[in-house]
Every structure is written in structure tokens, then in C-alpha cells.
Design a protein around this nucleic acid. Structure first.
Length: 104
DNA sequence: TGAATAATGGCCT
DNA sequence: AGGCCATTATTCA
């Protein structure tokens, strides 16, 4: 738990520009500890939904990027899926390398 | 209000 | 292995 993390949490909680769904997604994502990755379906199910697309949309449209560690959210296949609105790119594989470093 | 979109996941061939 | 369908929420027209 770092102060920056708390700042982002407060920001999400105070943000009214987003829906309750997105709020849950970001909160759950912030709750994910370092070194732990979660798939869209897993996170979706955690917030009480069974659709990963909705989570993907929320993260893609995330108004808090890159403040939210959306790079910790990966597909069930283990692929990063996307980041910063891009599904492929050098940035993506760099995030994947960062995740690999955090996973230990 | 309605239709299209999406950074998925699972099933069906 | 490849392709298609199912499910839910967001956003645009």
C-alpha cells in the first residue's frame, strides 16, 4: 500500500464521471497486490459480473490510465491483451516484461 | 432509445 | 488449431 495508490483510490471514489461498474473495476484492480495478475474474467467475476468484455471496455476507456495498473490485467491465455488502448505494440511487450519482473 | 463496439472466454468443428 | 458464438457494459448516432 503506497500513498500514490491511496491517492488513486480516492480519485476513483470521488470521480463521478465514471459509472459504478468502472469504479468497481478500478478499485478491484488497485486491490491487486504487486506480483499478482488477474484475468478480465476473473476480475469481472470478482466485481459481480460474468463478462470480461465489459472490464476490457472499462480499462480501455479508463480515464485514470496509466494511474491504474491496468497492465496487471491479462487475458485468460496469459497475454497482456492490451494497454493504453493498444492491443499490440512495443509498449505492450514492455508491460509484459514488467509484469514478468513483478511476478518473480 | 437503439445499434455498434470490445484490451474476453468458452465452445464447436 | 481455427472459427464462431455467448454475455455484459460503454459509447456513439
Amino acid at each position: 500500500m503506497e500513498e500514490v495508490n491511496l491517492d488513486i483510490r480516492q480519485r476513483v471514489l470521488m470521480s463521478t464521471d465514471i459509472t459504478d461498474f468502472q469504479r468497481k473495476v478500478y478499485l478491484e484492480l488497485l486491490k491487486v497486490p504487486r506480483g499478482a495478475t488477474i484475468s478480465y474474467g476473473e476480475l469481472a467475476h470478482r466485481i459481480g459480473c460474468g463478462s470480461a468484455q465489459a472490464v476490457g471496455q472499462a480499462l480501455k476507456r479508463n480515464p485514470f490510465a496509466p494511474d491504474v495498473p491496468c497492465h496487471r490485467v491479462i487475458a485468460h491465455d496469459g497475454t497482456i491483451g492490451g494497454f493504453d488502448g493498444q492491443r499490440t505494440g512495443e509498449k505492450i511487450e514492455k508491460k509484459r516484461a514488467l509484469l514478468d519482473a513483478e511476478r518473480c
